[in-house]
């Protein structure tokens, strides 16, 4: 594989990582910790929203993030023909 293609593959990969990790940070450190008091004024069913993110929501999002990453990377690997 030539160097240019390698570089482009890596750059796209890093782009995905930046987006996914931003969401990762937002739902846990953001909604679950830093903004928890503000979000707690909103109710989600019997939950305060900030508390829900800290003990439930962030975990659901984490699982989703990994599976989205798997899909994105499988596509990217095919595009650059580096899949196995």
């Amino acid at each position: 594989m030539d160097i240019e293609k390698r570089k482009k593959y890596w750059k796209e990969n890093l782009g995905y990582l930046a987006i996914l990790l931003t969401i990762w940070f937002l739902v846990s450190f953001g909604f679950g910790i830093l903004l928890v008091d503000q979000l707690n004024t909103i109710k989600l069913g019997g939950f305060k929203l900030g508390f829900w993110f800290a003990q439930q929501g962030s975990i659901y999002v984490f699982v989703l993030l990994i599976f989205i990453y798997v899909r994105l990377m499988n596509k990217l690997d095919k595009k650059y023909n580096v899949n196995e």
């Binding site: 990762w24 679950g32 928890v36 508390f51 800290a54 003990q55 962030s58 993030l65 990994i66 990453y69």
Partner: peptide, 21 residues
């Protein structure tokens, strides 16, 4: 209570790092 969230987020969020990085 809420303070226990550190374990919930801490011990699951690490898997996102593990999977991606």
């Amino acid at each position: 209570g809420y303070d226990g969230s550190v374990y919930l987020m801490g011990w699951t969020g690490g898997y996102v790092l593990l999977a991606l990085l």
